[in-house]
Design a protein around this nucleic acid. Structure first.
Length: 588
RNA sequence: GCAUCCUUAGCUCAGUUGGAUAGAGCAUUUGCCUCCGGAGCAAAAGGCCGCGCGUUCGAAUCGCGCAGGGUGCGCCA
């Protein structure tokens, strides 16, 4: 509806401007007045164009209003306020018309993307032999939401999990794990049993410590690395086994988090190992590769070091090895040439901003992208802090393990479910506890502007009221409950919606705003916009629920209409929460 | 030193092509279950939007300066 409204207003304003001898091609900003007593929508065009028209804003506004008022099917009232705001009050009929059209539409999202953009989303990017900690939460769930949203708008999305699965750390783990794996194979014991991820992590830490103390161990690990990189069959076999054991635990967490990443999305650093030399060659062709202190570098004017000297992007280390810039550049070639990406999105923490700035600039300057118009976007996010405003740690100084965090959330949610709805079966309680606990954590993270650090707090994340996932889930569950009581099927119900109360009107208008929120997330890559929208939708519903009884409504056509409005609310909530990767219980 | 992100109610945060009396949640106070699920609804109270100058009809938003905080800055990823 908003689309048509904007088009209508745009035409009218352009016509008025034309009468003043001005050709306008800029988009008109249609907004919602802060106080809804001032109408459903407002425009400030009269003030904006007053100067150009050499016409007082009030007079210009009057001319626009005259034309808007003629659109009686759209507006019940149009007025001028303050210095020249034009406030528009929609007619109930037009809201009903577009709302019922949306109800009859197969897809809740009608937006067809103008241009389909194949998009790579690089997120989660876990390291092998390391447990996921809270720091991995943000990349994993923000990337997951962005993938879902961009996909929902009709773009092909290729998810990429850029695993840290290559290099010296892997050699060190292999060095320590080798005897354990050999023994397990001899004894016929599964690796998951003897080498759970927590154990692998210990081995890695032990190896790091040993390398520091004993140069011999360090040398051995380096030998392992060289052999591994040369493709030694036995070491590759061990490497593969360790990777699978390590990822098994990661997938357990992905499943719990309802994150869509699968084994097919794994393209770790190891995947690019045979493309690194080619990538350096390709960069060399651009003529920008220069040797400096033995390393192969690209110098770009825009980057300066501490002392103000030119800052290199190191493509090949002085020992001939490759570093993370090389891997990212190789991945960029692969993604644009082989995967056909026209948009590549990197979801990593804000500390890597400079790295990506450099890599993007290098890719463009050296021309290694398949298409110079490929959009490269870094989606940075802040750190999760403890209540002392410092990065979240346990008492022993370790990073808080993601697995522990999620378990705690589900446990707490279970206690609440048990208290609030003891009639549910044990199985249902567990299900609901999972949906509510995980949903709360995800929503608490996603609903914040990702730019900022935030302070982690269980109490806030699992709060029962206010702007939280359980609040949205509760609205959904209540609607389902109404349909159970009314003995109607939520999956097939259909009726004509009409306005009989202001709360219905507000709710209907809000439902029609979903598309705008989704498009905004896909464009600006900020999931909290969708969270805000869904929260506002739930607030509208709760208010409606309180004022407009469905079951006790005597007029049967109003009752049918309210059921339809409820159902559309439910569908919209479920759709939006699904984009956030948050499950929606029908009872809780 | 340079770059970058940030500073909004007691606390945690929204507010983005500049718009009307700056909004939520938590905490505090007050109403509302003979009524579809009170994980709710309605309301009160709470603000030099870090400070200053500028741009203009209009600034939390844009520019400059200052103060305070986070992060990053050559071969780790």
């Amino acid at each position: 509806m908003k689309k048509q409204l904007i088009q209508l207003i745009q035409n009218i304003i352009n016509q008025v401007l034309k009468n003043h001898g001005i050709e306008n091609d800029s988009a008109i900003d249609v907004q919602t007045p802060p106080d809804r007593k001032n109408g459903d929508f407002s425009i400030n065009a009269a003030m904006k164009f007053a100067k150009a028209c050499k016409c007082p804003p009030q007079k210009l506004a009057a001319e626009i209003v005259a034309l808007l008022e003629a659109e009686t099917q759209w507006f019940s009232k149009v007025s001028i306020a303050g210095p020249g705001f034009i406030n528009m009050y929609l007619s109930d009929e037009i809201i009903e018309k577009y709302f019922n059209e949306l109800c009859n539409n197969k897809n809740i999202l009608t937006a067809a993307v103008n241009e389909v953009v194949p998009t790579v989303v690089d997120y989660s990017s876990v390291n092998i032999a390391k447990q996921m900690h809270v720091g991995h939460l943000r990349s994993t769930i923000i990337g997951d939401v962005l993938s879902r949203v961009i996909e929902a708008l009709g773009n092909p999305v290729i998810r990429q999990n850029h695993l840290g699965d290559w290099g010296l750390p892997m050699a060190m783990v292999i060095y320590k794990a080798e005897p354990i794996i050999r023994k397990a194979e001899k004894d016929g014991v599964s690796l998951e049993e003897v080498l759970p991820l927590a154990e692998l992590e210990k081995l890695y830490k032990a190896a790091t410590a040993e390398c520091k103390e004993d140069p011999k161990v360090a040398d051995t690990c380096h030998e392992y690395l060289v052999k591994l990189q040369q493709g030694d069959k036995e070491l590759l076999d061990l490497w593969k086994k360790i990777t699978r054991v390590s990822m098994a635990e990661v997938y357990r967490i992905y499943r719990l988090l309802n994150v869509k990443l699968t084994e097919a999305d794994e393209r770790g650093e190891s995947f690019y190992r045979d493309m690194l030399a080619d990538t350096v060659e390709e960069i060399k062709k651009s003529g920008l590769l220069k040797e400096d202190a033995g390393a192969q570098c690209v110098f770009l004017d825009e980057f300066k070091s501490k002392e103000g000297n030119p800052l290199p992007v190191i493509i090949q280390k002085s020992d001939g090895g490759y570093n993370y810039a090389t891997f990212d550049l190789a991945a960029m070639r692969f993604r644009t040439h082989k995967l056909g990406a026209k948009r590549v999105i990197y979801v990593t923490d804000a500390r890597q901003a400079l790295h990506f700035k450099q890599v993007f600039a290098t890719a463009r300057a050296t021309g290694i992208l398949a298409d110079p118009n490929v959009k490269l976007e870094h989606v940075p996010f802040g750190s999760i802090l403890g209540e002392d405003n410092k990065p979240l740690k346990t008492r022993s100084g370790e990073n808080v393990k993601l697995a522990e965090l999620l378990k705690e959330a589900v446990d707490r949610a279970y206690n609440v479910v048990n208290e609030k709805n003891p009639k549910l079966s044990e199985e249902q309680k567990k299900d609901v506890a999972r949906m509510v606990g995980i949903g709360a954590i995800k929503y608490a993270d996603l609903s914040q502007n990702r730019n900022n650090d935030y302070v982690f707090s269980f109490d806030r994340m699992l709060a029962l009221n206010g702007n939280t996932a359980p609040y949205l889930q509760y609205a959904h569950a209540r609607i389902c409950s109404i349909f159970r009581k009314a003995n109607e099927s939520i999956d097939t119900y259909s009726a004509k919606a009409k306005i009989s109360a202001p709360e219905e009107r507000e709710l209907m208008l809000k439902i029609m705003d979903l598309e705008q929120a989704v498009v905004s997330v896909a464009t600006d890559l900020r999931p909290h916009v969708l969270c805000n929208y869904l929260y506002e939708l739930s607030v509208c519903f709760s208010s409606f629920y309180d004022k407009c009884s469905v079951m006790n409504c005597e007029d049967s056509s109003i009752k049918a209409s309210r059921l339809e409005i409820c159902n559309m609310t439910r569908k919209t909530l479920a759709y939006g929460l699904n984009l956030l990767g948050i499950e929606v219980p029908r009872e809780m």
